[in-house]
Design a protein around this nucleic acid. Structure first.
Lengths: 349, 349
DNA sequence: GCTAGTCCCGTAAACGTTTACGACGCTATT
DNA sequence: AATAGCGTCGTAAACGTTTACGGGACTAGC
């Protein structure tokens, strides 16, 4: 018994007038507009989503697609990013919802279903794969979207990504300056793109310093705590002289697993092993203090939201910078974990 | 140019027949049904969400309300729960989406907006407060919902919660059996209900063992890493003889902060301090191994989904157990962090 | 006083889907 | 052979909203 005609009847005006009053259209007197808005507030009327979006062809919803399941990395990360996104969306009466793709469903099929159903006006995709069919699909359907993460699939689409090249540059050369020659890195076992970007830059930095690339120092792992933990044991299983003496790890959740795993095998970060990692709520309290890369996740969310809106026709006037394809820098926060090699006592067997 | 009439035209049948065929209604021949479904699959037709839910008055969507922002606790937790929920929903063509309430918006207002807009058919709310207006609101609007977490607000509604009484019983009496008399606990600074439940049970267990309750052993903190970390320093700031010698901590993310904080102040878990905590992906790799309570988050999600569907008229025949208001047990996984007091060397100042 | 213009507001169509209703053709029964 | 029944399908209304269109009332200008 709620609905616009109910409210209109209650006010003795037509439904058209009510709609115009609430949507700020010009063809309504200030007196009746005030009357309508007050009545709506008093009676708790809110336009029905289905009716509105059916008529307008837009939902006022932006979807953030993410995959659920314990395999995926945890998501303190996302909560802060979401908050940044929403602070932008709130200004435009847009709602952000997380579209949860079950681990049992194919991500590409999920995305097609979401789009065809007309669920959201725009999408944000994350965990981009090296080749990502979602990008081609969204571009071909002309759905506004932005990717959090680069991909080799290029549809001229907007994206934002962390500066993995910068982290490789700063992190690896910092360890080299501290005397390290054997520096470990990880390769994600799924085909998320970020791993490849980092490894490429990592190789380039080594080259610049005249250090030969050793494929044994690239440790394949799942991008979660367990993956980091496993790397520690993989290192310990190597002959001592072939082990890395330091590690640059751009994945924040892996840091915790690696840290604790290393301690279990007698490789103590900051003592006889060097780590440069990624900041996170958990990593912030590691002992000894983790030297890490940090960025404001909230600002990342804000940039993501603004860059997305810039590509949506309805908002281009508010955000008049075209397609953004940009890398956001991270700051190195010195800690005690990136010890110099000279200071390292012999690693325990 | 997609839509049901487009598909109907393409097949030379009426839109009514197409709709009936796709929705499994009886009034359609098997031959045309097959023809319609194949064409739909081939042309990639999926019914428009707005049109469908406008007509049916249902959206096929269940919303999981959660608050974003870095203040809230992180959510490796939720990802696994989501996966369990979805494995149930998938059988009924229901979609789960996370409704993200910005930290800048009032949760009660957010909920009202969501409900009034007719966004979801049912809701799951979490982080229940001691008195929670959302419960009364949803009950009065007769929206199907379930709460993850108890509350003193009781609308006869369904809920599921972790067995905090059981954790207090097992955890506290275990530490007492190991010689501890001064056992710490935490009280959440926001008014989430779980804190109160645990503290009440904690007091009762102490009483049963004839140990006086000391309010100084209840540490107020935010339920995140930083909160756990702060507790360590609060403990260190106490005169040594008034400090707790052990701690039972039911919040999984706080464990990491507390663990590392304690090490910083010279109170080493498993050596001169005892901790019983909650299992999590991060906590699993703490050194020394954390003695903790564990449960299957996926199964929790499954129970949550089934209990919710049991209260929805359309699904009561599939899940014919009425309103569930139940506590799910946790298993104690022994580690090395709950050291006996006799084994504790003198705590360092 | 007539016309043009302006300001409000009501009317009705449209968005895409589901579904009650009725129509049609066929078969089986009497 | 007439009728009842069944299986199949088309027609049209309905869901709640937005918006193009037109009309009425009033003002201003001549």
């Amino acid at each position: 018994m709620t609905g616009i005609k109910w409210l209109a009847q209650h006010l003795n005006v037509s439904i058209g007038t009510v709609s115009r009053a609430l949507n700020g259209k010009p063809d309504v007197s200030e007196a009746t507009r005030k009357r309508v808005m007050e009545a709506a507030a008093a009676l708790g009327y809110v336009p029905n989503q289905a009716g509105r979006s059916l008529r307008k062809g837009a939902t006022g919803i932006v979807g953030f697609m993410m995959e659920t399941g314990s395999q995926r990395q945890g998501d303190v990360f996302f909560m802060s990013v979401f908050d940044g996104i929403q602070s932008v969306f709130a200004r435009h009466h847009l709602d952000l919802v997380a579209l949860l793709c079950s681990s049992e469903e194919d991500p590409d099929a999920f995305m097609q279903r979401i789009v065809a159903r007309g669920f959201a006006d725009a999408l944000i995709i994350s965990a981009t794969k090296r080749v990502d069919h979602r990008i081609d699909f969204l571009a071909s359907r002309k759905i506004p979207f932005i990717a959090l993460g680069r991909s080799e699939t290029d549809a001229g689409h907007p994206w934002l990504d962390l500066d993995f090249e910068g982290m490789a540059e700063v992190g690896v050369s910092r360890l080299i300056a501290k005397g390290h020659r054997r520096i470990g890195a990880f390769a994600p076992l799924d085909d998320t793109n970020l791993g490849f970007v980092f490894i490429d830059a990592y190789r380039k930095v080594l080259e610049q310093h005249g250090i030969a690339f050793d494929p044994d120092l690239i440790f394949p792992a799942h991008p979660n705590e367990q993956g980091g933990h496993g790397i520690a044991y993989a290192i310990a299983a190597m002959p001592a002289e072939r082990r890395p003496t330091g590690f640059v790890l751009t994945n924040e959740v892996m840091c915790v697993g690696l840290y604790n795993g290393l301690q279990e095998v007698g490789l103590i970060p900051g003592k006889n092993f060097a780590i440069i990692g990624r900041d996170s709520a958990q990593a912030r309290y590691l002992v000894p203090k983790l030297t890490c890369f940090r960025l404001s996740l909230r600002e990342l969310g804000i940039a993501l939201a603004e860059s997305l809106l810039a590509t949506m026709p309805a908002y281009t006037d508010a955000y008049p910078f075209g397609v953004t394809r940009r890398v956001v820098p991270l700051e190195l926060v010195p800690g005690d974990s990136d010890v110099a090699i000279a200071a390292q006592p012999q690693a325990l067997a």
